[in-house]
């Protein structure tokens, strides 16, 4: 097909391109865009329920934002969210890099099919049910305490969910289990894109596996690594289901496992429109900035 003929033909069909885009943009406008704009709009108004009485809406400018930033809760919940994300992400990226390197290693020739299937599985499990399961497993008289007592590792049952470390640890463990398989597969497809000749050359030169990994694999894997990091961070900022169910929405103990979206959710349920709006705008700004990184890396790989 020569360029001129296709161009000529495509021009006459251009209207179909627009027609086929209508459902997407109509639905996006009604269910996402308009709600987003009204959310931003409400962030400049005072409107909440006082008992059964509705206060407002009154235009208050940036007052909601000032209240939000003056309240130490915001910083605390942001810190909780980031801490729990880091605790889950660090082991996840280390294990995933290791597994991806093993699975793609031409000399090791591991039979990886079964393992890939098993480690990806937790990703598809309903997070809320998985969280309820862990709540039951780590209960004071639950199976985990039972096992630890039987093995003589602890003398009396450990109250995981009454301690900050225990609760955050369980959230991180669940996030790790749910995402390390996915990350392994993403990193693998990145590693398989690397020219095998580079590995062969390194081997001939007598490079150790660690040298191969740090000098060849990692530098060439950087784009996909950045992609995994940023998408995981965006996902981490949305952390909700796991801590919400695990702590029954309370972020116990002492709100040390309360995340930003749980904070937003509380304002949504108490119908405090102004505060919910302000938190939403803040999250929008942060995730948009992060999204630009993702967009850039997608663009870079499409070229």
């Amino acid at each position: 097909m020569s360029k001129t003929t296709t161009k000529h033909k495509k021009v006459s069909y251009a209207k179909w391109g627009y027609i086929f885009l209508i459902p997407f943009f109509l639905v996006y406008a009604v269910f996402s865009f308009i709600p987003m704009i009204t959310t931003f709009y409400y962030s400049f108004f005072e409107r909440y329920l006082d008992g059964l009485e509705e206060i407002g809406p009154t235009f208050v400018g940036f007052d909601n934002y000032i209240t939000l930033f003056q309240n130490p809760d915001l910083l605390k919940y942001a810190a909780n969210t980031v801490i729990m994300w880091v605790l889950g992400f660090l082991p996840q990226i280390i294990i995933s890099l290791l597994f991806a390197a093993w699975f793609t290693n031409n000399r090791l020739k591991l039979k990886s099919g079964f393992f890939k299937i098993v480690i990806y599985m937790p990703n598809l499990i309903m997070a809320s049910a998985f969280s309820m399961l862990f709540f039951a497993l780590f209960a004071n008289a639950g199976p985990i305490n039972n096992i630890l007592l039987k093995l003589g590792i602890i003398k009396e049952s450990y109250h995981f969910l009454n301690t900050t470390a225990g609760t955050r640890g369980i959230v991180a463990l669940m996030n790790f289990l749910m995402w390390f398989g996915n990350t392994t597969i993403l990193l693998m497809s990145g590693m398989m894109g690397i020219d095998p000749a580079l590995f062969e050359a390194a081997e001939v030169d007598g490079a150790t596996p660690f040298q191969v990994f740090s000098r060849i694999t990692m530098p060439l894997l950087k784009p996909i690594f950045v992609y995994v990091l940023v998408t995981s961070l965006i996902g981490g900022l949305q952390m909700f289901d796991v801590p919400q169910i695990l702590t029954n929405g309370k972020g116990t103990p002492n709100r040390t496992s309360m995340t930003l979206i749980m904070y937003l959710n509380n304002h949504l349920f108490s119908e405090n429109y102004g505060m919910a709006g302000a938190i939403s705008v803040l999250l929008f700004i942060v995730t948009s900035l992060l999204s630009l990184f993702v967009f850039k890396s997608l663009m870079a790989q499409r070229k």
Binding site: F24, I34, L237, L264, A276
Partner: peptide, 24 residues
């Protein structure tokens, strides 16, 4: 422009428009 727009909105979480969504 449309293609780029869809890629940009791809990573914006739905939660941030939840307030307006429920309201609407």
């Amino acid at each position: 422009a449309i293609f780029n727009f869809i890629l940009i909105i791809m990573t914006i979480p739905t939660q941030i428009s939840a307030l307006g969504f429920v309201d609407l």
